[in-house]
Design a protein around this nucleic acid. Structure first.
Lengths: 230, 230
DNA sequence: TTGACAAACCTGGTATGCCAGATACAATAA
DNA sequence: TTATTGTATCTGGCATACCAGGTTTGTCAA
């Protein structure tokens, strides 16, 4: 056997378009657009200079971002970051509820006991009485996010994962803004535990229902308390 | 008042890119890709000649179609029409079930009695004993499709409509291929009537459950009987 | 000072040319 | 004949020039 060099295959897949897409999506989703009162405008030529590529890959990335609903281009006016309305946010949360509910159903049918057990570990450290989630909102918020992502992943349905990927960006932002209100963190962890218990018991109908209701509660909360959304 | 010509405003919104996108999507989705055994390859330059525009709007349209999962471009190889696997089809049907189930829930909460009553009229002519759906599969298939579209629309949730738009293209094709099997048409109309009755009674939980189960049944049927899918 | 109006510029849309990788095929050597 | 290699050709990725419509700005008359 001849000695061979260990070479990694060159990443021939990531074109400038793909890189620009990820860079722009990252940039757009990392700013809290609901905190800025004025609308944000993007400039193709400026971005192409900043990223060091021509306008073509920038435009193709913008095409993708527009289809995903993150930006809106007005011909000869400019490209603008989209601010979701309260109605749209609620609709997205409702869809999220339906998809996560389906994920819970699929988990009871197909996931292994070990996988389900792994969900509990996400909340290790938040269950003792002396360590209430209110005191560590950021940490709990992260665990919260990981829980919902894990549910989607364990479902084994890639289509759910794909469809929730962009919803998640918006729902996550809303969750983070509302987690501190109305004792939601403590109530949230109770809901999560009940969902996990239903999954462990393979109670398909209950798990499905609890997962749906948990997220529909968020929708109702946003309806009542998020007047800062237009 | 001076006489004026009746002129329609020029459709300044539909760019070549948008027109190319719709033309290509129409062309791709109208061919039954599962009937052709060989993979279908698209050529940017050929298409730009056929549509009479340059490659740029073609490329941007392709970018959109690729993100929607209808085509896949391999650099310096070509652009290929995507053939969904059986696994992917089932996943899409499951997602459809979750979204239509949510739509049924929302209808019981927000739709008017008149809107719900309109669902029955879609099946006028298929309910008499002498006019069984089996004898008119094409007509029934159309009514079937309109029923599911109406459910989505009546939900009032635009996000559901957007997310099911592309799923529908695939699910529709599968429904049409399976409607003639296994007495599915007759059983389907029974399911639909039960769903309508639950909606009329504003039975949220039942309508939600029936709508979900009706489509999950399709998923189970595909799992068992659609071996022609890869 | 203020209003209208025109010129300069800015912006996204489109066409086009070039590039490098991939392929097909012919030429060549074993 | 068969394996190999070189070359012509084809393909999508990218850069760039130009266009038309919109905006801004500045000038000038009232």
């Amino acid at each position: 056997m001849t000695p061979r060099l260990e070479v990694k295959p060159i990443d021939t897949q990531s074109s400038f378009r793909t890189q620009a897409y990820h860079a722009l999506k990252q940039a757009i989703t990392s700013v809290n657009i609901y905190a800025h009162p004025h609308e944000i405008r993007l400039d193709e030529r400026q971005l192409s200079q900043d990223l060091g590529v021509s306008r073509t890959p920038i435009r193709e990335a913008m095409t993708l971002l527009e289809q995903e609903g993150f930006v809106k281009t007005l011909p000869r006016r400019g490209i603008f970051v989209v601010r979701k309305t309260k109605r749209e946010i609620i609709e997205m949360i409702e869809v999220w509820a339906a998809l996560e509910s389906l994920a819970a159903r699929l988990i009871t049918l197909h996931a292994s006991d070990a996988e389900i057990a792994g969900l509990r570990h996400l909340f290790d450290g938040f269950q003792e009485n002396g360590h209430s989630p209110e005191g560590h909102l950021d940490e709990y918020s992260d665990a919260n996010i990981r829980f919902h992502q894990a549910i989607i992943k364990l479902s084994g349905n890639q289509c759910i994962a794909d469809m929730t990927e962009n919803l998640f960006i918006h729902v996550r932002a809303i969750r983070q803004m509302t987690i501190g209100q109305d004792n939601r963190a403590a109530r949230s962890i109770v809901d999560h535990m009940k969902i996990i218990e239903a999954l462990e018991r393979r109670d398909t109908e209950l798990a499905e229902k609890l997962a749906r209701q948990h997220t529909l509660d968020l929708a109702a909360h946003v309806e009542k308390h998020c007047e800062f959304l237009s």
